[in-house]
């Protein structure tokens, strides 16, 4: 259930900030090649995730390894495991 909610919130960032259609957002999609995001968009993705989940990602080395939407789901899920507060404070 929590994982579904995390995915829903992450997908919301892609819909709101990058104006993608919800049906395009499947886990295997590559964010640069399939969504045509670039380095400026990645900065906005990081701040979007920080805002949504109340976490700090700017200096997180794992961010640099993100290639697919699945990678983002996995990263946020890992952060949630390490930080129970993240789940407790998830936006409604």
């Amino acid at each position: 259930m929590t994982r579904d909610r995390l995915i829903e919130l992450i997908n919301q960032i892609f819909v709101d900030q990058f104006e993608l259609e919800p049906e395009e957002l499947t886990p295997e999609k590559r964010i640069f090649e399939d969504f045509a995001l670039d380095s400026l968009d990645i900065v906005d993705l990081i701040t979007g995730l920080q805002r949504k989940f109340g976490i700090s990602l700017r200096d997180n080395k794992d961010v640099q390894q993100i290639r697919t939407l699945q990678d983002i789901y996995d990263l946020v899920e890992k952060l949630a495991r390490d930080n129970p507060d993240l789940i407790a404070k998830l936006p409604e």
């Binding site: 400026l40 968009d41 900065v43 906005d44 701040t47 979007g48 920080q50 805002r51």
Partner: peptide, 8 residues
């Protein structure tokens, strides 16, 4: 509110 700043 740095998270409200756009990269652009």
């Amino acid at each position: 509110r740095f998270n409200d700043l756009s990269a652009c």
